[in-house]
Structure formats: structure tokens, C-alpha cells
């Protein structure tokens, strides 16, 4: 599976907010079709790491490469950021749906404004995408009329509609109760099975173990331990990871 050049390569990535360093030199490679899960305590840098991959968090050091697009330290030029975001989709913890647009309009907006497709075509593609996440019957619902799980599935459809190479999932079930979590995870599971490249940060340990090819345990902005999911869970090499897994149950 890991043959050829990696789709994503991070080298010495540093990110800081003020004096606070949240990423202290991250090296990471992800190949197309892999599902990589970041685990670690809140504040360990999971979210920041994901956000460096689509330019939401400009780098303070090191480099990020996705496909043929490379980001270096500082604010990247706008065209490069746009090129990067064409390849990278993102789903957030709080869904961040546009509340003044219906489900189908949420998905169609970027198809129209970013990809320049006609309104009709964008609408058609959005419908297909929503059907894929099981919301074919809620096309014209407003976000507030949908459950949290449904909203998150619209957000996934919105990201996938642009046909990214990589999907970033930032604790996408943390705001959901267990029942709704299951329906969102089912969508991610199906995507993983289709061969989508996924990077996610999650506290859902069972799910991480089930779908991930690789697990990365972050501690204080550094990769503390990484490897195949099963191995990390069954035989953690560092006491910190063992303690973390124990605490997460």
C-alpha cells in the first residue's frame, strides 16, 4: 500500500500561537488511500496539525507538501493556498454549516463559486453528494432543522463535493451523542473502504482502531509514538501512550 511517493509529507512542522509552541517539529508521511488517526490529549496539537494541511494555520517553520503543492513558513501566496484547498477538504467539530442556506445550497455553494460550475450543475452534484451520505430526503432542510449527525453528514458532503484528494476530520463526532456519532462514523467508514485518504483527530478510540491504517500519538506538539493501529493499542511502547489508552478506556 505504501508504495511510491507519499501524497502528504510534513517536514519539521512548527506552529506557535504567541509564545506557545503547539507543534514542535512534526515529520509525517501519508500515502494515498491511507487512513491516519491522530490521538492525544486536548491541546496536544492534533487540531493544529490538521489545520496546517489546508493553510488554516500558517506554518512557523518546516514545510507541508500535498501532492505537488508545497507550503513553507509564513503566509503562502493566495494562488498556492487555493491550489492546496482544491486537494484538501475539511470537516469540523462544530459542523460550521452556513445557517442561511439549505442543505443542498450548503453543498452547492463552493461547486458554484470555487469550481465555477453553473447553478444547475452545482445543484445536481450537490444532490448526488447528499444522497451518498444518506440525506437524499433532506435536500431542502435548513441546518437548524437537522440533527447534529445529519448536519455533520451535510458538512462531509460539502467537503466531498469538491472531490478532494484528502479529507481532514477534526474531532467530527465530539459534539454528538453516541447514537448520532455512529451514523457519522458509518459515513467515514464507507469513505475509508472506498480508498479515500483521511486524516482525522478523534477521541473515539474503538473507531480509530477499527478504520485506521496508522495511528499517531501526539504529546506536547511532538509525535510521541506511531505505528499500525492494532500494535499501538495492544502493545504501546511508551508509558505515556499506555496511560493515555488506559485513560480513554
Amino acid at each position: 500500500m505504501a508504495a511510491g511517493a507519499p501524497l502528504i509529507r510534513l517536514q519539521g512542522v512548527v506552529k506557535q500561537y504567541g509564545q506557545q509552541q503547539v507543534l514542535r517539529g512534526i515529520d509525517l508521511e501519508v500515502h494515498a488511500g491511507q487512513v491516519l488517526t491522530l490521538i492525544g490529549r486536548s491541546g496536544s496539537g492534533k487540531s493544529s496539525l490538521l489545520r496546517t494541511l489546508n493553510g488554516l494555520a500558517p506554518l512557523d517553520g518546516g514545510s507541508v507538501q500535498v501532492g505537488d503543492v508545497q507550503l513553507l513558513q509564513g503566509l503562502p501566496p493566495p494562488d498556492r493556498i487555493r491550489a492546496l484547498r482544491k486537494r484538501v477538504g475539511m470537516v469540523f467539530q462544530k459542523f460550521n454549516l452556513f445557517p442561511h442556506l439549505t442543505a443542498v445550497q450548503n453543498v452547492a455553494l463552493a461547486l458554484h463559486t470555487v469550481q465555477g460550475r453553473g447553478r444547475k450543475e452545482a445543484h445536481g452534484l450537490a444532490c448526488v453528494q447528499l444522497e451518498k451520505v444518506g440525506l437524499g430526503d433532506r435536500l431542502n432542510a435548513w441546518p437548524h432543522q437537522l440533527s447534529g449527525g445529519q448536519q455533520q453528514r451535510v458538512a462531509i458532503a460539502r467537503a466531498l463535493a469538491l472531490a478532494p484528494d484528502v479529507l481532514l476530520c477534526d474531532e467530527i463526532t465530539s459534539a454528538l451523542d453516541p447514537e448520532l456519532t455512529a451514523e457519522v462514523l458509518a459515513v467515514i467508514r464507507a469513505l475509508a473502504a472506498e480508498g479515500m485518504t483521511i486524516l482525522m483527530a478523534t477521541h473515539e478510540m474503538d473507531f480509530a482502531r477499527e478504520v485506521s491504517d496508522r495511528l499517531v500519538f501526539l504529546l506536547d506538539g511532538r509525535i510521541h509514538e506511531e505505528g499500525p493501529a492494532d500494535r499501538l493499542f495492544s502493545a504501546p511502547r511508551t508509558p505515556e501512550l499506555a496511560r493515555f489508552i488506559g485513560a480513554m478506556g
Binding site: R85, G89, M90, F92, N96, L97, F98, A110, R158
Partner: peptide, 8 residues
């Protein structure tokens, strides 16, 4: 953030 992530 959502809009920027979509490349808008």
C-alpha cells in the same frame, strides 16, 4: 474557516 477550507 469553513468557507476558506472550501477554497472560497
Amino acid at each position: 474557516e469553513a468557507g476558506e477550507a472550501l477554497g472560497m
